[in-house]
Amino acid sequence: MAIQNSGPTLVQGARATQSTIFLKILMAASGAVFIAFVLLHMYGNLKAFNGHDAYNEYAEHLRELGTPMLPHSGALWIIRAVLILSLVVHVYCAATLWKRAKKARTVRYQVKKHTGAIFASRMMRWGGVTLLLFIIWHLLNFTIGKVNVTGGATNDPYNLVVDSFSTWWLTVIYLVAMAMLGAHLHHGIWSATQTLGLTNSDRTRKLAKNSAFTLAVVIAGGFSLVPIFVLAGVINK
């Protein structure tokens, strides 16, 4: 096939768990946790359409999940721990594979077409960085810091949502982030099925790609409804 040289030697004592594919399996598994989470989170957000009390009751129910078996907010903290662990794993693997890919081609092409690639697939890394920044801001906004950009109260979840998204630029930030999330999921969901080895035929690959697109639109679209309807004044105090 090619000229023999004195290049790298054969690997001894190979371990499947030390491979790039194993890192991808970890990414897919942590990604699957995120998919389940964003689906539930989106569903919860839509309670805003049922008004002030329904929304705040839902938020309180989340904290009572599993009580009295678990302490108040116990289940919520378990979910948070799983999410934080998943995020650490996901970002660690992403960074490791990113570095590796950069080393795998150090001289770039003068001319390169991207036949066969969709835009979303080439945006995964920078899109992921954007999502990470968004996640940090989002937690400061609604969970840890509770920032009310209108200067109003922060102890009422529903009112905080309405105040936040009545502010046009905050709504724009969220909508951009949801477009990024949609793109990440459009490629990510199909990619995860492929990484987990579930798409071993033309038929299952097409099914996975179509499902990924549909789910991405449902999730990103579902999340976008509340900010849009608040800004439009349909959801109000």
Binding site: V11, S19, T20, K24, A101, A104, S121, S191
Partner: peptide
């Protein structure tokens, strides 16, 4: 796969090119 990684090839992200 171990040899592939050892040779310095990158990891797949299922782009499809």
């Amino acid at each position: 796969v171990a040899q592939h990684d050892h040779e310095g090839f990158g990891g797949c992200t299922n782009i499809g090119e």
